[in-house]
Design a protein around this nucleic acid. Structure first.
Lengths: 169, 169
DNA sequence: TAATACCCTATCGGGTTAGTAGGTTATAAA
DNA sequence: TTTATAACCTACTAACCCGATAGGGTATTA
């Protein structure tokens, strides 16, 4: 629906004005951490927090953490396939931790769910990819800066284990 | 174009097979630093590197750094509006730095071009936004982790000025 | 006054995210 | 053996943004 006034001197679209106003007021904020990763970490923390060996159902996590159950299913499945979780089918089934929470670094979790930790592929350790547009990686002013950012992030995520983040109240 | 074989027992789409194969082989790597920001930083570094007071043309930066000129124009315009650059129209015109490179922190540049530095809006200092889905921010296992990441990133980007990154050969 | 270079608006294709929908299979309890 | 349960699998989609393009307009200088 476009409301426009065509009266000689004036010719404007009201709809466009509204859209532009919205854009300036509600600036889109990009998530660098996807919901998938966020939910995955939360789910792992939830399971770790329970402590006992009994499997935890998707539905329980879904309700408690307010996550779409179907979406969560696909995430837990991925975590199982990548060796973080075990599963048990049927009644009383669910997902359980395979390793001790202390042994699960956040770097590993994020790399599986999110992909690279670096902000730019050309400084990624595990997902390296050359920039198509960069004439020279060495002459690139962004490159060394992003390496510094990567290393500091890596330090934080490597120091934090699942035990650390699920210890929070 | 869909190439499919329908011969009784078989019914598959070759195209889909190719697409799925591509997806698994060439996993999409998300850029946390947009091209816009990357180009913006490179352009600023380019101007800083020249050193003299003469304005630098968009076309010159575009060619040297291999950036779409039209796209670059919009980025430089934004940098001018946010107080990093001044401009001069007409022949011999272009963009020039307003402040000394030593006075331009990378945090400021990134916040203008990219937005928040934090990986999640709920830990952003300048672009804070509550998570719609989180039952409790304090109980959130991701929250404190992301605060640590934010702070370490902030440290790096705050320590680096335009002078630092344009000093590179 | 012609050339230059900044400035502005509108539009678009491609690709991802965050789901939804609807089923199938394995397991445990009845 | 049946039935309920919960994991597992496949396909699809609306919404959304990025990066770029197109086509101008306007100000300044030689």
């Amino acid at each position: 629906m476009v409301i426009s006034a065509n009266s000689g001197l004036f010719n404007f679209s009201l709809e466009n004005s509204i859209i532009n106003a919205k854009k300036s007021i509600f600036k889109y904020i990009r998530n660098m951490l996807s919901k998938k990763t966020k939910y995955g970490i939360k789910a792992l923390a939830f399971i770790a927090k329970k402590g006992d060996k009994r499997p935890v159902q998707t539905s329980e996590i879904s309700k408690s953490e307010n996550i779409s159950q179907k979406f969560l299913e696909s995430i837990l499945l991925e975590l199982r396939k990548s060796g973080f979780l075990g599963s048990k089918k049927g009644k009383g089934g669910g997902y359980y931790l395979i390793k001790e929470p202390e042994a699960i670094k956040m770097t590993a979790v994020i790399r599986v769910l999110e992909g690279p930790i670096a902000m730019v592929p050309c400084v990624s350790l595990n997902y390296y990819e050359k920039c198509g547009d960069c004439p020279s990686e060495e002459a690139c002013s962004v490159h060394s800066l992003m390496i510094q950012v990567r290393d500091s992030t890596l330090k934080v995520l490597g120091d934090n284990t699942l035990a650390d983040i699920s210890a929070k109240k």
